[in-house]
Computed example of a mutant assay.
Amino acid sequence: MRLEVCVDGADGATAAVAGGADRIELCSALELGGLTPSAGLMARAALLPVPVHALIRPRSGNFRYSSAEVATMLADIRAARKAGLAGVVIGAALADGRLDADTLARLRDAADAMSLTLHRVFDLVPDFAEAVDTAVTLGFDRILTSGGAPTAPEGIDALAGICAAAAGRTGIMPGAGIDAGNVGALLEALAVDEVHGSCSVAVAPASSRVAPGFGGDARRETSADKVRALKAAMMRSQAARRER
Rank of each mutant, 00 (worst) to 15 (best):
Y65T: 04
Y65I: 06
S66Y: 08
S67F: 02
A68P: 02
V70C: 08
V70E: 02
V70G: 00
A71Q: 08
A71L: 09
A71D: 13
A71F: 07
T72Q: 12
T72W: 11
T72P: 00
M73A: 11
M73H: 04
M73W: 05
L74H: 02
L74G: 00
A75S: 12
A75N: 06
A75W: 01
D76A: 14
D76L: 12
D76N: 10
I77A: 03
R78W: 01
A79N: 13
A79S: 15
A80C: 06
R81P: 00
K82L: 08
K82Y: 03
K82Q: 13
A83I: 02
A83H: 09
A83W: 05
G84S: 05
G84F: 08
L85W: 09
A86K: 13
A86N: 12
V88M: 07
V88Y: 08
V88C: 11
V89F: 11
I90W: 05
G91N: 03
G91R: 06
A93S: 15
A93D: 12
L94N: 12
L94S: 05
L94C: 12
A95C: 02
A95F: 01
A95T: 03
D96A: 02
D96K: 09
D96E: 07
G97H: 11
G97K: 11
R98H: 12
L99F: 09
D100W: 04
D100T: 03
T103M: 14
T103I: 15
T103K: 08
T103D: 14
L104D: 07
L104F: 11
L104Q: 05
R106I: 02
L107H: 06
L107R: 01
L107P: 01
L107C: 07
R108Y: 04
R108W: 01
D109F: 14
D109P: 00
A110N: 04
A110D: 05
A110T: 01
A111M: 05
A111Y: 06
A111C: 07
D112H: 08
A113M: 03
A113Q: 14
M114Y: 04
S115I: 02
L116P: 14
L116V: 05
V121I: 12
V121L: 14
V121Q: 15
F122R: 14
F122G: 10
D123T: 04
D123A: 09
D123R: 05
D123P: 04
L124Q: 15
L124N: 13
L124K: 07
V125N: 13
V125A: 13
P126D: 00
P126F: 00
P126M: 01
D127W: 00
D127C: 02
F128P: 06
F128N: 05
F128D: 13
F128T: 04
A129E: 13
E130Y: 00
V132T: 08
V132F: 06
D133M: 12
T134A: 15
T134D: 14
T134I: 15
A135H: 01
V136D: 10
V136T: 11
V136Y: 10
T137P: 00
T137F: 09
T137E: 15
T137W: 11
L138D: 09
G139L: 09
F140N: 11
D141C: 01
D141S: 10
R142D: 07
R142V: 01
R142K: 10
L144M: 10
T145R: 11
S146T: 08
G147W: 15
G147F: 15
T151F: 11
T151N: 10
T151D: 09
A152D: 15
A152N: 14
A152C: 13
